[in-house]
Every structure is written in C-alpha cells, then in structure tokens.
C-alpha cells in the first residue's frame, strides 16, 4: 500500500486514496463502501441512513500514542463491519480505542480483531460499544482474538458495553493464547517443521476473518500483506 487510506465504492469501481485521515469522514446515504487502512487513524466516521461500511485494517507497524476511532451510527439501517489484522513484530505497540455510538434505530456494528504478536510487541485495545436509549434493535458485537507467539509479547483487551436500550443484541468475546497444541502436533506428525507449522496455523487464524471481507481483491491483498509481515519473510522485505 502506497498511501495510508483507501476508500472504495463497492457498487462501482470508484476509489479514493488519502494520506491524512479527515477529521470527519461521512459515509453518505445508501452507500456501500470499504475503507482500507494501514494504521488506525484518530478520527471520526459518520454513517448516514442505510450506509454500509467495512473497515479493513492490516498492520505490522505500531504507534506510541493511543488512538481513538469513533463511529457515529446516526442513520437507520446502518451497517458497520470492522476487520482488524495485526502482525506485531519487534517492540511495536498497538494502543487504540474504537467507539461505536448507536444513535439511530436498527443499527449494526460488528468488530473483529485478530492479532498475532511476536517479539516484545503488544496490543492494547479498548472497544466500546455504546447503545443509546432510542437506538432500539441495535445489533452489536466485538471479538478480539490474540495469539501470543513469544515470551515477551503482551495483550490487553477491554471490550466495554454500555447499553441503555432494551431491545438489542449485544455481545463480545475475547481469547488470548498460543497456537492450538493439538493442531500443532498433527502438523508436526506429518513431518512439517515447527516454523512452517506455526506459520500455517497463523494463516489459518487470520483466514476465517479474511473471508469476511466483502471484496475478493482486498481479500487477496490482505493475505499477501500478512505473508509479507510474518517474521520468516519480513527480514527479506525490509
């Protein structure tokens, strides 16, 4: 990726790139767009009635100051999907916060974040889901899965829910751990080296989430980027 952000229309082929994230990005009525980011921007995204947005964040470079990304779901029938992919290397840090404000009725926001942490990297994620009083029929979900692949890697996760409407679907889930031991054993018993097996399992870990990207081109791009970021390939790239 040359620029930091790419905003694509999924209904036609229009796309727009920018290096600086605007202070407020508005997704117009009825639009179906995809926002590709190489880092979490500090900023605000407003979704108007019927707007659909998929945010895809793929990164291996962190930042030091915590960043806050806010999504205001001000129109009815808005649909936000946030897909985050982090490959943490060296001592990179990924401190960030996302907030979704469900303001109108029938709004949906689903967050999925997967992080594979190597070296002394760390991810510190606070995902806040706020459903305001009149935002009935909101559907909100957050999942944060982290693979800690070295002794010094760290993860911190605070999925927070604040709900004032009663007719809602809300939930969150988080897991933190290593690659599955049984799967690892299976691959090792097939004669695959530990390094290769771990890489396969990491790809598998990300793959379930890659398939949630609504556009095939972006799916391929994310797969390529993750392969490039993984430590076994990384040295040759940089």
């Amino acid at each position: 990726m040359d620029t930091n952000f790419v905003l694509k229309n999924l209904t036609d082929t229009k796309e727009e790139s920018f290096a600086e994230f605007p202070s407020e990005l508005v997704i117009p009525e009825g639009a179906d767009q995809l926002l590709l980011c190489s880092a979490i921007p500090a900023g605000k995204v407003v979704l108007r009635e019927g707007a659909k947005l998929t945010v895809v964040f793929v990164g291996c470079r962190g930042w030091s100051q915590s960043r806050k990304m806010v999504f205001d779901l001000i129109g009815r029938n808005t649909d936000l999907t946030f897909l985050g992919f982090i490959v943490g290397l060296g001592s990179e840090a990924f401190p960030f916060e996302t907030i979704s404000n469900h303001i109108a009725q029938q709004t949906k926001a689903h967050y999925y974040l997967r992080a594979a942490m190597f070296g002394a990297s760390n991810v510190d994620y606070q995902g806040k889901l706020i459903i305001q009083k009149h935002a009935q029929l909101a559907d909100t979900y957050l999942a944060h899965h982290t693979l800690l692949l070295s002794d010094d890697s760290r993860a911190r996760t605070i999925p927070a829910l604040e709900i004032e409407a009663d007719d809602v679907k809300a939930g969150h889930a988080a897991t933190i751990g290593k690659v599955d031991k049984d799967l690892m054993f299976y691959l090792l018993s097939r004669g695959i080296s530990r390094e290769q097996a771990e890489e396969l399992l990491i790809h598998g870990f990300f793959e379930t989430q890659i398939r949630m990207i609504p556009e095939e081109k972006t799916q391929t791009l994310v797969r390529e980027l993750i392969t490039k970021f993984l430590p076994s390939h990384h040295e040759t790239v940089v």
């Binding site: 999925p159 889930a173 988080a174």
Partner: peptide, 11 residues
Amino acid sequence: DEVSIEHEATV
C-alpha cells in the same frame, strides 16, 4: 504467551 484465556459476554 503460554496461556489460555477466554472471555465472552452477552446482553
């Protein structure tokens, strides 16, 4: 890293 942590919440 050698841990298994799970969390889930529903409303």
